[in-house]
Design a protein around this nucleic acid. Structure first.
Lengths: 106, 106
DNA sequence: TGGTATATTGGTAAAAATACCAACAAGCCA
DNA sequence: TGGCTTGTTGGTATTTTTACCAATATACCA
């Protein structure tokens, strides 16, 4: 078994992925680095909101950023995080199979 | 790209995994089903707290439960979720490599 | 039946997450 | 330099999450 301390570290990283905007950013960066503006353009939220979501991903070590002129470039640090999405899909499909509507996010 | 609706569904499932107690429960159930009492015994929290964490996992479709006498048996529905832990470890190791302390969960 | 063990539900207080607006900082170029 | 673009930070209101206690429900057994 893992310790509670180890679980806290792991859950911090998972929590960083557990928001729709942050999940979409991860998906988007899977195919290559993007500027803040490109990422911002995907959503209808305020700039500051997107900037703070990116900070959460950065602090978790999931993305990194570097300045390029007046742009800020965001890069996915650990592409394997997207491997997980297949399993999330399996959970969703299993829920459908069991006639169980997922109650999350309602 | 995935849609925001799809991202909301996925993030709901990931959010269900993003708590240390729920993560430890998933790890614990990886080796087989367990009773509520066995799970409860791992932690120092109130029964009701653990019961509610298990409800979150159940509503996400990650675990299922069935009554057996006076016990409640919890089962991991989609074992592939634990595959993800390897990648979480990769994130942690990458953070260490980059001399970056993970700021999450402090 | 009455008592005990097992687990869930209701209610609530405290903490954390989220999104907005405003203000600021840094780079670019006319 | 002055103004424009790009992105972050500060502050705040709202919502969500979390953990506890108390009460309830269900099964078992004497």
């Amino acid at each position: 078994m893992i310790t509670i301390e180890e679980a806290e570290i792991r859950s911090g990283i998972i929590k960083a992925m557990s928001h729709p905007v942050r999940l979409m950013v991860i998906e988007y960066l899977k195919d290559g680095s993007r500027t803040f503006s490109e990422i911002f353009g995907l959503f209808g939220f305020d700039k500051s909101t997107i900037s703070k979501h990116l900070l959460v991903l950065k602090e978790a070590g999931i993305v990194s950023s570097k300045k390029n002129g007046s742009d800020m470039i965001y890069t996915l640090e650990v592409p394997c995080v997207t491997d997980f999405f297949g399993c999330v899909t399996a959970v969703i499909e299993n829920n459908v199979r069991r006639q169980q509507v997922c109650l999350c996010k309602r």
